[in-house]
Design a protein around this nucleic acid. Sequence first.
DNA 1: TTTTGAATAT
DNA 2: AATATTCAAA
Length: 618
Amino acid sequence: MTVEDQRGEDGGSFDRFPVGMRVLAVDDNPTCLRILESLLRKCQYQVTTTNQAIKALKMLRKNRNRFDLVISDVNMPDMDGFKLLELVGLEMDLPVIMLSEYSDTKLVMKGITHGAVDYLLKPVRMEEVKNIWQHVIRRKKLDPCDQGKHSDQGKTCQESGEGGKGVTSIGLNQNATTNRKRKDQDEDEEDEGEYDEHESEDPSSTQKKPRVVWSPELHKKFCAAVHKLGPEKAVPKKILDMMNEEGLTRENVASHLQKYRLYLKRLPGANQQARLVAALRAKGCSYVCMDTLDGFGDMHTMNGSGRLASSALSSSYTHGGMLGRLNSPSGLTIGGISSNGLIQPGNPQSLSSSFSTLGKFQPSISVNQSASLFQGIPTLEHNKLQQTKSTAHIGEFNPLNSSSGFAVPASFPDMRVTPSSSSTVRSSSSNPLMGDQSSVRVTPLLPESFDGESRGSSDFLDHNHYNESWEVAVQSSNFSSITLLRECSSHGQIHSNNLGIPSTTAQISNSPHEFSSSNAFLEPLAGPRDGHGHGNFIGNAVQSADYTEKHRWDNHNLNQDFGTLNSIVDQLNGCTSSAFESNEIENSAMVAKTETNEDFIENIESLDDIMSAMMKRG
DNA sequence: TTTTGAATAT
DNA sequence: AATATTCAAA
C-alpha cells in the first residue's frame, strides 16, 4: 500500500530508507516507546506510537491501510504482544515486528511462528530499525496484489543482502535459536555512515553488549568450574578462567555466582517444597508432575515455556496453524500416585477426601493430554505409575497462565525465594551455602544406584554429569523434601531401609555435591520398605530424579509446580512446617516407610483446594 | 590496584 | 526474573 519508499535504487545499498514508511510502534514502556520512535523517525519513517496494544489494534482496525508495518513490544499489560501479533496477522496483512528484552528461543520462536516478520531485542539498535522496511517490501512482494504499488526494482528485496545484515538480533533470516553467547558486538557494527550522527545521540543505538544468557551449557560449565574449585576457591575470577568462555566477563560470572549461591542457599531449607510436598502428601498426593514441553518438539517447547498470557496463548495457538495443534496444553498433573499409602489412615492430617473430586478432573483430560503429561517425565516413572495404576490425574494446570511459567532458561530450576517460608524454616541449614561446611555431608549411599555413574560427592562433578548437579540438586531437593516430610509426618522415626542402606544423616546440604548425595541416599527409598515391599511413591520419585540426572530433565516446570503447590500448602493445614524447623532433620536418618495406599483416597480431601488454588494461580 | 560480593538497577 | 552495574570492603 503505501510505502512511499524510495529505496535506493542504487543497487541495494541501504543507505536510503523508504522515507515515510508508516510504522505503528507499540510499547507500554514510555521510555522504550520514545526511543523506538526516535529511531524510527531518524530513519525517516512516519511514526505513530501508542503505549497500549489495544489502542494500536483500534487504530489498525480503523484503517488497516494506514500503516505499513507494526512494531510491537511483547510484554504489555493490556494485551500480550503475541495476541496483538496474532490479531494483526488475522485481520490485516501487515508485517509485525516483535520487540522484546528477552531472547529466549522459545519466545522468539513463538513470535516468529505466529507471524512476526522479525523479533528484535531491546534495546533496539539503529541498524535494526534501519532495515525493517525490508519486511514491508517482502510482504508486498509476496502479495501479488499489492506489488504494483511499489517500485521495487529487482533488488528490492534482497533481504539478506546487505540490508539484511543489520537486521537483527534475532531475525527471521537469522537463526532464531541464536540467542546465546554474546561475544559479538564488542566491536560494534556501526556501519552505515549515513546515520552516524544519529547514532551517537541515540541512547538505544548505543551499542550495548548483549546480555549473557546462561544457557544450560554455560551453566554447566559454570557448575563444573565451581565444583572443581570448591567452595573456597570458587570466586568469579577463577571460575571465569576455568570456564574459559570467550566474551564472558568476571562480572557476568560474579552475577551468576551470586544467583547461584542464593539458590543454593535456599535449597537446604527446602522447606517450601518440603512443606508443599508434605501437604500434598498428606492429602494423598504422592506424586506431582507437570507436563512439560520437553517431550515435545521444538515448537512445543516454545509453547510450554511460553509465558504468554493465557488468552493470548490459547488463541494464538488456535490460530497458529501449525502450532495450533502441536501445542497440547501443558498440564500439571497431580497424580496420586499411589497409593501406597502415603497417607496413613491415622495421619493427623488426613482429610476427608473426595476422590470424586479427583474424578471430576479426569474427564477433562483427554487421553492424549494425559499421555503428554507424562512426556516430560522419565519413562521409568511413567511406567511405574501405570503399573501401580494408582495414578490419578487431578486436574490440569495450564502453565501458561502461571506467573512462573515463563520460559526459564533452565539454569535455575527453582530459585524462587519465599520470604515467608524462609523465616519459618531455618533449622536445617543455617549455613550460607557454598562456603559453609557446617552441614553434615552425607555419604552417598548406594552410589551404584546412579546407574553406574558414580558420584562421589567430591568428584562426580568432574564428569560430564556434574554439570547438572545444580539442577539435579534442585530436583533432588524436591524429592528429598518429600522424604523428609514423610519422615516427619510419620512420626519422625528413623528407620533403616531394607535395602540395607544405612541410616543416613538426612541432610540438607548446601553444596551441590551434598545435594546430589542426598539424592543418592534417597535412591534406596525406591525399594521396598518396611517389609511392605511396595514401591512407594517416593521410590518412584527417586527414580525419576535419578533418571533425571542421567537424562537431564530440563523440566523446570516440575519445580515450578512445587513452588506453586507450596503456596497452596500454606492454605492447607500447615502440617509439616514444624518438623522442618527442628534440626533433627539434619541428623535423623531418613527412611520412607511404605504405607499402604488406598487410604490416600480417603485423605484426598483438599486436593480440591490445591487444585483450585493451582488453577487460580495460573 | 584488583577482586569480591552484596546491593541495586534495568 | 535474569543479568548487569555499582560500590564498599577486602
